[in-house]
Design a protein around this nucleic acid. Structure first.
Lengths: 129, 129
DNA sequence: CCTTTTTTACGAATGCGTTCGTAATGTGTC
DNA sequence: GACACATTACGAACGCATTCGTAAAAAAGG
């Protein structure tokens, strides 16, 4: 099944699974559950079911040839994060990123490296206008 | 009913209502519906019901003395936005704001004023470390 | 004060996300 | 091949967000 439209927004539980896959790379259901289970207490079949749903939604892909089956994200982490940010922007910030950035920077301490990178991007954006 | 714990996270529909109230200030159900109705096609009683639920959740307050009743947000916009950002941060960015900021700045063009303000905040944060 | 309209309350239906029990299928071992 | 174990599929239940119909209460208009 090929897919013209991009996959839908992942739900909360789905994002948790995506995070594991982005972090660990291709994984089996068991491997994902080994991370999520202890942390959330969720059952193995629950993780399996979610991952199956995610395949039908186009959020994950899988290799059914091997046993156990191996799953991986259909979209890169950046892509998905961008969608999530855009969504929050539209829903709660009237589409203006500035306020969101300010809130994000205030909420938690960033590392100096991160701050430097943000500054570089800022230079970039200002130079272009 | 006073409230020790902060109100819970607003849902999507609830954020839409909060946005109207932040924008217009204290409003009646009808006034909120006049904004949301045309945009989303939602019915008047639906808006009412949601706003009633939001009162019980501690998201809104209301004056029942006047007719029609007047509602207003229990929390400032900044407060709520901060909660939403923190939530997204935890769920999808492993709690590190830098990546979120980068995504936010890439998604949409910011005004030069916004960029300047972000730069000021950046100076502030770097000076403090 | 009666009628009409607006406002408010209540109850219920629907849909979606999440969860897991149980069954079916596959794999490895003796 | 028979048994034990792991993997996968399926179906159903549960809770929550959202929706609206309908009815009760209040206000406005005559």
């Amino acid at each position: 099944m090929t897919r013209a439209t991009p996959p839908p927004m992942p739900t909360e539980a789905e994002v948790a699974i995506l995070e594991v896959l982005w972090d660990q790379g291709r994984s089996t259901v068991r491997q994902v559950h080994e991370v999520l289970g202890p942390r959330t207490g969720v059952g193995l079949t629950t993780v399996l079911k979610l991952m199956q749903i995610m395949v039908t939604k186009g959020l994950l892909e899988r290799d059914t040839e091997v046993r156990p089956q191996v799953f991986w994200p259909a979209q890169a982490q950046r892509q998905t994060q961008k969608r999530l940010v855009r969504d929050l922007l539209d829903k709660a910030f009237s589409g203006s990123p500035g306020e969101l950035v300010l809130q994000a920077l205030s909420v938690r301490r960033s590392t100096p490296e991160e701050l430097a990178e943000i500054r570089r991007l800022l230079d970039d954006l200002e130079a272009r206008s």
